[in-house]
Amino acid sequence: MLELLGIALAPGVAIMLYIYLKDKHEREPLHLLITSFLYGAFSTLVTLVISWPLNTFLILKEGDIVDEFFTAFFKVALVEEFSKFFFVRFILYPNRNFNEPFDGIVYAVMVSMGFATLENIMYIFEYGFQTGILRMFTAVPAHATFGVMMGFYLGKSKFTHSRTLYFGFLALIAPTIFHGSYDYFWFIAEVKDVWAGIWVFAIISLVLGLILSRNAIRLHQQASPFNTATVDENNRI
């Protein structure tokens, strides 16, 4: 049991440590990062509350490639990303410690890892060690990329001082699109008469998300008002 718990916790902890170390210029209080992680875990309950009426009144056929599209993008991706978005945008966003664009990425990833870790524990204890290894390199990193995208646009929303609603909208829609795409290709991989290797496109979407996340991290690091190199350059100008 401890082995399974360790496998379930490891990827989320590793990703959170990675993001924490990438916050080079003005790191967030540890207690707030832990709180953000707990918000993410609690967001799974929000997901369940929203999903219950959807699953009750919006009946979609499993194994139908059109219905699976709506399941992936609306019943899963949009609901889960909104649940995480709620805590980041309405609780963490106004916090005085959210004082540079990169903080959007930090808090959104912490919330995403809270969600992904609790989800990971449930999956691994139900399906076992092999599922844990698979999710360590797929589902959990995917949730991290969704968090980076959300946080990137929330950082722009708060500190660009223009098009706030536009960037706030992208903070929800961008991760929803990538999340839905990732899930959709996994969902239809087992559908009869669909190419069995279509799951490869889920991996492609994950790789693309990782590339975009790396660029987003770099851009917000450079944009930090606490970045002395940027401040010195601006002073020279």
Rank of each mutant, 00 (worst) to 15 (best):
Y153N: 13
Y153D: 10
L154N: 13
L154W: 10
L154K: 11
L154C: 13
G155D: 07
K156M: 15
K156Q: 15
S157C: 12
S157A: 15
S157R: 11
K158E: 11
K158W: 03
F159N: 08
F159Y: 12
F159P: 02
F159L: 01
F159S: 01
T160F: 14
T160K: 12
H161P: 03
H161C: 04
H161K: 14
R163Y: 11
T164D: 13
L165G: 13
L165D: 11
L165S: 03
L165E: 12
L165I: 12
L165K: 11
Y166G: 11
F167T: 04
G168F: 08
G168D: 12
G168T: 07
G168Q: 02
F169P: 03
F169V: 08
L170E: 07
L170F: 09
L170C: 09
A171F: 06
A171P: 03
I173S: 05
P175Y: 02
T176A: 02
T176Q: 03
I177N: 06
I177C: 01
I177D: 04
I177R: 05
F178S: 01
F178V: 10
F178N: 02
H179M: 05
G180I: 01
G180C: 02
S181Y: 04
S181R: 06
Y182W: 08
Y182A: 03
Y184D: 00
Y184V: 03
F185S: 05
F185T: 09
F185P: 00
W186T: 12
W186R: 04
W186P: 04
F187D: 04
F187N: 02
I188R: 00
A189D: 08
E190V: 12
E190T: 07
